[in-house]
């Protein structure tokens, strides 16, 4: 067991290292010069002053050092929890900017991923044994899962926001409000949260339902199901076993899908101008804000790695066969 998790941790550590390195590289290989754009923003015409500002900003962000030095500095700063200063929202530190956006993103991703997984699995399991439900769930599931996140988001915004006028189409809360802990504000938050949540939830739902339907049908035809049926076990017991065994590949699927789901959430945020990491990343790219971009990516990488690790642990708990594999010599 310890060996297994040791190996897992090593792999996650390696992934983290590579991800951080790539993360550091991407903005630096992007075209454009952030310092030049900051200087341009200041609207100064005197060449001497421009030169002075350029030197000041370069020194401030560490761009005057050789690349390898910048890389090492980046790691050192990372361990101090220092992501640097945002260029776009200068002089706010990146950590504060991200800290403001992360709750919105988490509030979207966590419920939509978990709920779509749970509901999709239930729906698929029901569909597997009711003809009528199967004939509806399956095609609807295929349509949903084939939809790009942002497209469904646009559709929902248009139908429920613009046409029906039931939900707001942009923002995390009404522009007329300031964040506070009152019920009115929380309700307003929820109101703005509904559409982005729905678009994420619905797209993921289809995929889980289809997967579960197929797995359940497979499990219900397996030998242990037939044996139980031959011994007269009630359908309830057989379906319970089938569901439990069919959930296992779905857990693996969740781990595999996590990255895609996060990417979908980011795009959806942009559609709804939702003030989460997705919108932040878009702004960071538009403003060549290296540090903000790095910080946001890093946060996502860490989040996905942690989620994957949790799924690994869950899998070990629910499937005895993985435990047996760990006890044995080598797989």
């Amino acid at each position: 067991m310890r060996r297994y998790f040791g190996r897992k941790l090593l792999i996650y550590g390696l992934t983290f290292f590579v991800a951080v390195t790539v993360n550091w590289m991407i903005p630096r290989f992007m075209p454009g010069d952030p310092v030049a754009s900051m200087v341009a923003r200041a609207n100064i015409t005197q060449p001497a002053a421009v030169e002075a500002m350029r030197r000041y900003y370069s020194g401030l962000f560490g761009f005057d050092q050789p690349l390898w030095q910048q890389y090492l500095n980046f790691w050192a700063a990372l361990f101090r929890g220092d992501f640097g200063l945002s260029i776009w929202l200068f002089p706010h530190p990146v950590s504060t900017v991200i800290g403001g956006a992360v709750p919105y993103t988490l509030a979207l991703i966590v419920p939509s991923v978990l709920l779509s997984w749970v509901v999709g699995n239930r729906l698929g399991a029901y569909a597997a044994r009711r003809k009528l439900l199967d004939n509806t769930v399956l095609p609807v599931g295929y349509v949903l899962t084939a939809m790009p996140y942002m497209w469904l988001a646009v559709l929902l915004a248009w139908a429920l926001g613009v046409l029906a006028g039931v939900f707001p189409v942009a923002g995390g809360y009404s522009f007329s409000m300031r964040p506070n802990w009152s019920w009115t504000f929380l309700l307003d938050l929820l109101h703005h949260w509904t559409l982005p949540f729905l678009s994420l939830f619905l797209v993921a739902l289809g995929g889980w339902a289809i997967g579960m339907r197929n797995m359940i049908i497979y499990e219900l035809e397996s030998d242990y199901s037939n044996y139980l049926a031959a011994l007269g076990a009630p359908a309830r017991l057989i379906r319970k076993y089938a569901f439990r065994n069919a959930v296992l590949p779905q857990i693996t699927g969740l781990a595999l899908q996590l990255g895609v789901l996060v990417a979908g959430a980011l795009v959806t945020e942009i559609v709804f101008a939702y003030p989460g990491l997705g919108s932040l990343i878009l702004k960071a790219i538009q403003n060549k804000d290296f540090f903000l971009l790095q910080g946001a990516f890093l946060f996502i990488v860490i989040g996905v790695l942690i989620a994957n690790f949790i799924i690994d642990i869950v899998y070990v708990v629910v499937d005895p066969r993985t435990r047996a594999g760990m006890a044995g010599a080598r797989a």
Binding site: D223, Y227, L231, G232, N245, D319
Partner: peptide, 23 residues
């Protein structure tokens, strides 16, 4: 027929090796 299965008539299946729920 369910009332008779297991109580009156029982089966050792051809696939006995995989007849037990693995989890």
């Amino acid at each position: 027929m369910n009332d008779y299965r297991f109580h009156q008539v029982s089966l050792i299946p051809q696939y006995a090796m995989s007849a037990l729920n693995p989890t």
